[in-house]
Design a protein around this nucleic acid. Structure first.
Length: 482
RNA sequence: CGGGCCGGAGUAUGCCGGUAGUACGCGUGCUUUGGGAGCACGUAGACCGAGUUCAAUUCUCGGCGGCCCGACCA
């Protein structure tokens, strides 16, 4: 009698899932502000969501190792005076730092800042570590949590506390530091495009969008399904700005004292939010196979009395897939098949194998892919081979889909009228800009669009600024951003 | 911090100035099991404070908290 209500309820859930809230629940739960609960705007990462983060960690760590970057760990608390040393840096972060004023039952003589990023405390240490050109390059990374008390937290995308990786390096020359910053950006680009199947546009940030205290900031910008931009990762060429105030200096090959040229680069749990918004559909998450913690789930079907045999077969298949290097899990719970299907679809597992008594009789299994398409019957012997190519195909397909979406929403415009309409419709808008920060600000106020980046790849082209009409030599990407 | 909406079982909601109703969930039992199972029984609820009133979950005000939109931002 309640099947109608039930159906409506489900419809509702599907509708609401358009704003992703349903799948957050399986990955990250918003932390409620309860009297004894966690702080507003923070997040709880559930085991399944954390497994995704661990995959990202592992992949980046492998690259870091190849580049001879060492992992280290620095303190959570930063004495306030350290943060205050670099003028631009302190001004950039002052509004969003959390400060500890009391501890041990007493008021502290000097307040402690909870790190919003670790440049200051690390470079204070680096000044001791770096003495000679022989100590360079110094390549340090840390996996840590940081706190930024933003005015408006947003689940995944801008939580008060978030996890990230921050790399910090010191080099002999500005040229070397700049090359390094760009190289790290390409590592992030690899992660985004090859692993997470999210196409990105690499480029440089405008002066007003760059990191506080940096010489310049490189970025990769991703586009979500709705056409809004998400800064996926950044890499900063810090020049000697921090080295000068923290005295990170060394004796060079000619015996002269020089300031080190530095870089810092980071990627946060925000990327998981980007992943969701780039690929998910109304059924839930869609995980690209190279990233997915579970690539294949084997679902047993049938009565309790028959599942013993089915489960046994499932284990054999799982073993074989593992040997082929596939991350596989068995779901042998005594639940109705539909319920299990929906659950794993919601979790975004790329490939599902259905295994029941009927399949066993034919020595076959049913294969279903998360990114759509028909279910197919496959002889059990062919499974491992078939699945490897299937995973590769899904990976390519997801990238292609995201790529097509992005390409279709990049608009080249030359007039102010076209510009405002293209921004409003949710596009990456390629337009000429004169380079004037005032004009940039005005555009932001009038349309909500910010300069996402000045793309590396573009032909030199003379034109007129879309807003001011002044001469311009490059196009930049304007878009609304998360 | 500004503008809008909201606050009730674990979740989502209907009605209402006077027994707080429904669905899902959860628990037990039986029947089921190839796309979200059925029946029976059970479980559990008004953010805080003040005001109006014979009577407030409902109306008013304040606080606290949430969501959405701006400013901020990985």
């Amino acid at each position: 009698m309640n099947s109608n209500n039930d159906r409506n309820e489900r419809k509702e859930i599907t509708k609401r899932s358009e704003d992703y809230s349903q799948w957050y629940l399986d990955v990250i739960a918003a932390a409620d502000l309860a009297e004894n609960g966690p702080v507003r705007g923070t997040m709880i990462i559930k085991p399944y969501g954390y497994a995704i983060w661990e995959r990202i960690q592992r992949i980046l760590d492998e690259h870091f190792k190849e580049l001879n970057i060492k992992n280290a760990y620095f303190p959570l608390f930063i004495p306030e005076r350290l943060l205050k040393r670099e003028t631009e840096h302190v001004e950039g972060f002052a509004p969003e730092v959390a400060v500890v004023t009391h501890a041990g039952g007493k008021k502290l003589e000097e307040p402690l800042v909870v790190r919003p990023t670790s440049e200051t405390i690390m470079y204070e240490t680096f000044s001791n570590w770096v003495q000679s050109y022989r100590d360079l390059p110094l390549l340090i990374n840390q996996w840590a949590n940081v706190v930024r008390w933003e005015m408006r937290p947003r689940l995944f995308l801008r939580t008060t506390e978030f996890l990230w990786q921050e790399g910090h390096t010191v080099h002999e020359s500005m040229k070397e530091a700049d090359a390094w910053a760009r190289q790290m950006l390409s590592v992030y680009q690899y992660l985004a495009e090859q692993v997470m199947a999210i196409p990105v546009i690499p480029g440089i940030k405008s002066e007003s969008e760059k990191f506080a205290g940096a010489f310049c900031t490189y970025t990769i910008e991703a586009m979500m399904q709705d056409g809004k931009a998400l800064q996926f990762a950044t890499s900063h060429n810090l020049g000697t700005n921090f080295a000068k105030v923290f005295n990170v200096s060394f004796l060079d090959r000619d015996g002269n004292r020089q300031y080190g040229s530095q870089t810092s680069w980071g990627l946060s749990t925000r990327t998981i939010g980007g992943l969701i918004m780039a690929h998910s559909d109304d059924k839930g998450l869609v995980l690209p196979p190279w990233l997915a913690p579970i690539q294949v789930v084997i679902i047993t079907i049938g009565h309790a009395d028959s599942t013993g045999v089915v489960e046994q077969k499932a284990r054999e298949i799982a073993e074989e897939l593992k040997k082929a290097g596939i991350r596989v899990e068995i779901d042998a719970r005594q639940l109705r098949p539909g319920e299990k299907f929906y659950e794993w679809e919601k979790k975004g597992v790329p490939v599902r194998i259905e295994l029941g008594p009927k399949d066993l009789a034919n020595n076959e299994a049913i294969l279903a892919r998360r990114d759509g398409g028909e279910k197919v019957s496959i002889p059990v012997n062919f499974l491992a081979r078939k699945i490897n190519s299937l995973l590769a195909d899904i990976q390519t397909n997801l990238y292609k889909k995201a790529s097509q979406n992005m390409v279709s929403k990049i608009k080249k415009v030359d007039t102010w009228d076209e510009f405002s309409r293209a921004v409003e419709a949710g596009n990456f808008v390629l337009a000429h800009w004169c380079g004037d920060a005032e004009v940039e600000k005005q555009i932001k106020e009038e349309t909500g669009a910010t300069i996402r980046c000045i793309p590396f790849e573009q032909k030199a082209e003379d034109g007129e600024c879309v807003k001011s009409g002044k001469p311009s030599v490059t196009r930049v990407i304007f878009a609304k951003a998360y």
